[in-house]
């Protein structure tokens, strides 16, 4: 799956007095997902991560740009056929399972909708197999979601997402609502499933230590734009964009002797409704010059792409 120039704008306001304003939640995003690989998207709250997830899972139509799946462009008319290709796991395992349905029903629903020709016995067998695959016991099949813990629920959510045998799985902060010990269990399950089923993951997170654990490539977003895109090791070892560096410096490290060089960013995340010229990060950047305020930088680079006029060099 790949995306070119993906953008989503919202019209907000527009009462009697105020004019409608355009909110650019996501502006011009390019990425590719490959089977068996994980692309992580990181960024602070409100940078458009969840909007991206909604576009990739065909809930919202991109305002601009296009998604292609297996080389074929995706249009809203194709959405019903492509449901089984892309699935999603949500952040909150308490809200993502229908409280009125038993686990069996929850797991079978994707098949009921998308494979109506499948006999009921076959559906049940597949649901029970899937339950085992995500590490739950067969007797859980008849229970209600409220009888489970957060980690178990997230396993169920993963199982449901995999029922249609998708190629792409969008993970919208799949572990950030869980306990630390459960987080690692779920992450290991996800890594394990990826190897077994050759899935492509779009892993959305704000937790860099989690990203370090699972990602192959990383996209750093700021205000709906990509500021840096690189393979994991390059990005973590030698960030080029000041924002990435600041983000990395904010990750707590389990090394009390290591000197921490926390870069503190001044100011707040600006409203995505203010359309300003120049780099979106310029007001908070310690390296910003006049050029940054007047001209927005393009994403440049070979393996490590950066949108910055003055990228951080290897010896800074």
């Amino acid at each position: 799956m790949s995306a070119r120039g993906l953008a989503r704008h919202y019209q907000v306001g527009g009462g009697l007095i105020s004019a409608t304003q355009t909110l650019r939640a996501v502006a011009g995003l390019d990425f590719d997902l490959y089977p068996g690989k994980t692309l992580a998207v990181v960024g602070e709250s409100g940078c458009g991560k969840s909007t991206l997830a909604r576009m990739v899972t065909f809930i919202e139509e991109p305002t601009l740009g296009a998604l292609t799946l297996d080389g074929k462009p995706v249009t809203p008319a194709d959405w019903p056929d492509l449901r089984s290709e892309v699935q999603i796991v949500f952040q909150d395992p308490y809200g993502s399972l229908n409280p009125r349905q038993r686990i069996g029903t929850i797991l079978q629903e994707p098949l009921v909708i998308n494979r109506p020709d499948l006999p009921a016995a076959e559906r049940e067998a597949r649901a029970r197999d899937m339950l085992g695959l995500v590490g739950l016991r067969p007797e859980h099949y008849d229970r209600y979601p409220h009888m489970f813990s957060g980690g178990q629920r997230q396993r169920i959510a993963v199982a449901r997402a995999l029922m249609l045998e998708p190629k792409v799985l969008v993970l919208d902060e799949p572990v950030s609502a869980l306990d630390l010990s459960i987080q690692s269990a779920i992450l290991n399950l996800l890594v394990d499933l990826q190897e077994r089923l050759n899935l492509a993951y779009l892993f959305i997170s704000h937790d860099l230590s989690v990203v370090r654990h699972v990602a192959d490539d990383v996209i750093v977003m700021y205000l709906g734009r990509v500021v840096e895109k690189a393979p994991k090791t390059l990005l973590f070892d030698a960030p080029k964009h000041p924002y990435t560096k600041a983000l990395l410096s904010a990750t707590p490290r389990a090394d009390p002797t290591g000197k921490s060089e926390r870069i503190k960013l001044e100011g707040e995340l600006p409203s995505p409704m203010d359309i300003r010229t120049g780099c979106a990060f310029a007001p908070r950047c310690w390296k910003a010059k006049d050029l940054c305020r007047d001209h927005a930088p393009d994403l440049v680079g070979e393996t490590q792409e950066t949108a910055c006029h003055f990228p951080i060099g290897p010896f800074e």
């Binding site: 909604r54 899972t57 065909f58 809930i59 959405w79 019903p80 449901r83 892309v86 699935q87 999603i88 949500f90 952040q91 909150d92 809200g95 993502s96 399972l97 229908n98 409280p99 009125r100 349905q101 629903e109 994707p110 909708i113 998308n114 959510a157 449901r160 249609l164």
Partner: peptide
Amino acid sequence: QKDYVTSARVVGAGLPRLMFITVLPN
């Protein structure tokens, strides 16, 4: 607003199913 409704939409539930099977029982 809840995620399970979105989740039903992602697996392709149509409006009648969304209304009567997903949301109404809750």
